[in-house]
Amino acid sequence: MRIEILTIDGCPNGSAAERAVRHALSELGLETEPAVRVIRTPAEAAATAFAGSPTVLVDGVDAVPGSAPIQDLACRVYRTADGPSGHPSAEMLVPALRAALGS
């Protein structure tokens, strides 16, 4: 399983997204190391499933569906149980991780 966190320079939510990914992995007993990739140009964004910073990909697929890929170097807003957030919660990421495991 490949987990990638796509972010832009100066994103205030990149590290929070990484913490959420690590928490979700820990919850499932997985030792996979997430990769962090900084998107620097609109062309880089267009070549990925980047849907705003941060975007978490599991095997190349957006872990939190519902946002279309964009080419802008922009922030992303997630709808969480606690209201809008600049990063996904661990609870939002667990289903995508489980699906990638086939469970």
Rank of each mutant, 00 (worst) to 15 (best):
E44T: 06
T32P: 01
P42L: 08
V58W: 03
G52W: 00
P34Q: 14
F50T: 05
L30E: 09
A49I: 06
E27L: 13
S53A: 15
V36P: 03
A35V: 15
P34I: 09
P42M: 08
V38A: 05
A46H: 04
A51V: 11
A47W: 07
A35Y: 02
R37E: 06
E44A: 13
E27G: 12
P54I: 07
I39D: 01
A47Q: 12
V36K: 08
T32G: 05
P34F: 02
V58T: 14
T55Q: 02
V36I: 14
A46M: 07
V38I: 15
G52H: 04
T41I: 04
R40S: 12
T55H: 00
G29P: 01
A35I: 12
P42C: 07
A47L: 09
P54R: 03
E33V: 15
E33W: 02
A35F: 09
G29Q: 10
G29D: 07
A43Q: 15
A46F: 02
A35S: 14
L30K: 05
V36G: 04
A49S: 12
A47R: 11
V36W: 00
E33H: 08
V36M: 15
E27M: 14
A35K: 13
R40Q: 13
A45F: 01
G29Y: 07
V56Q: 06
A49T: 10
T48F: 03
T55E: 01
I39V: 15
V56A: 04
V38E: 11
P34V: 13
R40I: 06
R37K: 14
G52L: 09
V56H: 01
E31H: 10
V56T: 05
E44C: 12
G52N: 10
S53P: 05
L30D: 01
F50G: 03
T41Q: 00
E31F: 08
R40G: 03
V58H: 02
F50P: 04
E27A: 15
V36T: 15
R37Y: 07
R40T: 11
T41H: 04
L57F: 05
T48P: 02
V38H: 06
S53R: 04
E44L: 09
T48Y: 05
T41F: 00
A45G: 02
G29F: 06
P42A: 05
L30W: 09
P54N: 11
A51Y: 01
E33L: 09
P54Q: 10
P54S: 10
P42T: 08
G52T: 13
